[in-house]
Each structure stands twice: as C-alpha cells, then as structure tokens.
Write a protein that binds this DNA or RNA. Structure first.
Lengths: 199, 199
DNA sequence: GTCTATACTACGATAGAC
DNA sequence: GTCTATCGTAGTATAGAC
C-alpha cells in the first residue's frame, strides 16, 4: 500500500532493464519476475508491459544489453593484458567472472534457451558479436581451425562460468575469497589450459 | 481431473525423492515444485507433505541422496582410472559431468544456500563425506597443505560444473557433442590443470 | 497414509480510466 | 505512459474426511 507512485519521468524502459540487472545480481534468474521489477521501481505491475510485450521480450532486452556490456569488458581486459595472445584470452575469463558476479547476467541469461525462438534482432547482433570477439581471442593464440577456436572458447567459458557459479552459490564463502581472488584463479587456470608448458 | 489416483503402496517417500530427481533432470531447480512432483506420481498435492514438512526438507533429502550417489560414482570412476593420482582426480571431474547431466543434481542443488540453516543431519554427513572424498583425491596428487587440496578441489569442480552448465544450457547443441564428449573434455582439462607439464 | 477442499500468496497478462 | 482493477494460473501449505 505504498502511496509514493508517480514514476513517469521519461524512459521507464531503461529503468526496467537496469532494475532487472539488479534483481538478477541479487537473486538470480530463478527468482526474477516482472512484478518484482515493478515493485522495485515503485510503478504498477502493468507499467513494464507498456514497454515490453511480455516477460520473454524483457529478458531478451536484458540479454542484448548484457552481451554488449560483457563484450566491452572482455575487450578492455584483453587490451589491458600483455600482448601475449594467451594472456589476452585468459584475461577474458577474469572479465567474465567479474562481470557475471557483479550483474548476475552470464551465459545462462544471455543464451537462455527460452529466448531462442524470439527473433530479437538486437539481441542476435550482440550475442553474435560477443562470440566473435571470443573466437578472435582464441584464434590469436595459434589455433589452426575454427573447430579448435571453438573448443578453446568453450573451455575458457566453462572455467570462468564454473568459478562464477561456485562463488555465487557461496561455495567459497568459508575461505575469505574475494571476487578478485576468484577472478585471478580463473585467469590462472585458463592460462594453464591454453599453453600448459608455460604455466 | 485424472481419476487414476490411489497411490498408497508402501513408501511414497522414496517415490517422491525419485520423482524429484526426474524433475530436476528435466527442468532444473528453477522449475522444481512439490506440486509437480505430486502430479507426476498421480497423488494429491497434499500427499508429499505427509513425508516432508515442507519443500526445503524435501530438497534437503534430495541433496543428501545426491551427495551419496555422486560420491559413489566419483569413487568408482577414480578406482577405474589408472593408479596415477592425477588421473584419478581427473576421472572424478568426468564422473561429475555424467552424474549431473543425468540427474540435474549438482553442487547448486547439493549445496543450495537455502538449505544451510536446516540442520539435516543425514545431509550434513553425506555432503561432508563427498567433500572428504574429493579432498583425499586431491591430496594424493602431491599437494602439501589443506589449503592446496582445497584449491585443487575447487578448480576441479569449477571445470566440471562449468562444462556441465554449458551442456545443459544447450551451448554445445550445434556441435554434435555427446555427454561422453563433454565429460572427456572435462577430464582432459582437469588433467592439464593438475600437472600442466604432462598434458 | 492418502484424499478432497480450501486459504493464501505470487506471477503473467489484459482492460479501461486518467 | 502510467494508473487501478481484475482474471487466470500455479504454487505452498493446512484442515479435516476416509
């Protein structure tokens, strides 16, 4: 029965996406709901439906934004690393851990199976660009075929996402592991996997 | 309005746990519900509450069973591997992938944060035994401290769970990757991470 | 030990007022 | 562009009959 409604300053659409990220970071995709987003913004539960036809389209917009932002952070991390291609790909793993722990929007959100049939063009572009960036980083390490690139990307993402999941689920809680610790371990593991002899 | 009820042959309790595993394997923890379990068993939605006081206690029982079974499969896989300690730990990663893809009951279910406050003694025993088994496998590879054991276990689980998640979420779908392919890649990656120079 | 029936809560989504 | 109000559905859990 809170009476402080009246949220109509311009773009509710952007605010809805922002609030969706916050809820994902706090409670994960499992507890995400359009109603909770509306509550957080102190608008009615009907308001978001003016900007997104349904829940799936909202999540598709979140997916597109997450793919764009994650790609930007991966690129920045790679560029901040040494010119060594293996270090650049490993830096991407670290960026993944940091981004997903912070936002809750990892591959399970970005590539959620329920979004496959949606034909959202913006999302399609952003996810494609994200994968291309990762494949390029992998290819630079000296792989010879597209299949090798793909396997290396999958390994990198598996390690990064595995560490992220363990951290988010509290498996690291008893140790005083910070996000930076976990990210560093993901980077080190990825680095070892790319060129084992130079670990 | 299905009328073929009348499920009272002995242990509904065991059947509820079994059906819970099936639902987890099919739809994950996100879509798990006591009501769906009851529907699957063709009993009323109230029936499971005769055996479990609430949803959390049911999930705790599932967690305990999963920890027990996963530990058994990890032990079997390690014993089937070569005597080399690194190969034994790597085999555990493969067993994790296979078990969790098949049952849907991985670390996020076994160590779900919502079960922490429950004080289920059986679950406590089984999860502890599972961790002990993993730590023993890690210690046998030549680590020197408990902290090193722990870090190695975390790396192993991170890799195994990362591959599992990508597989379950359909990220490997376009390639014709079977469960055995994915498990083999998790084993290889873990093997590399334990002793990089012998990859 | 399982049933029917029900109370309560929450979510997705829509209709129509302003 | 947001509101109030509402419908339909589904889930958790309980009460009381059998």
């Amino acid at each position: 029965m809170s009476t402080d409604r009246g949220y109509h300053h311009g773009s509710l659409r952007a605010a809805v996406i922002q609030a969706s990220f916050e809820l994902l970071a706090e409670s994960g995709l499992q507890h995400f709901s359009v109603a909770a987003v509306a509550r957080r913004l102190k608008v009615s539960s009907a308001a978001p439906y003016r900007h997104f036809p349904d829940r799936a389209h909202l999540l598709a917009a979140v997916s597109a934004a997450a793919a764009r932002d994650l790609r930007a952070e991966i690129t920045a991390a790679a560029d901040a690393a040494t010119p060594d291609p293996a270090a650049r790909l490993a830096a991407a793993a670290g960026a993944y851990v940091r981004y997903v722990v912070r936002t809750g929007a990892g591959f399970p959100v970005i590539f959620a199976a329920e979004l496959y049939e949606l034909a959202d063009e913006s999302r399609r572009e952003q996810t494609r660009a994200l994968l291309t960036t990762l494949l390029d980083l992998a290819a630079a390490t000296g792989t010879r075929t597209y299949r090798e690139d793909l396997l290396l990307v999958e390994t990198t993402v598996a390690v990064a996402h595995g560490y992220t999941t363990l951290y988010v689920d509290g498996f690291f809680a008893r140790n005083s592991s910070t996000i930076d610790d976990v990210a560093a371990r993901a980077v080190a593991a990825t680095r070892t996997l790319i060129t084992p002899d130079r670990a």
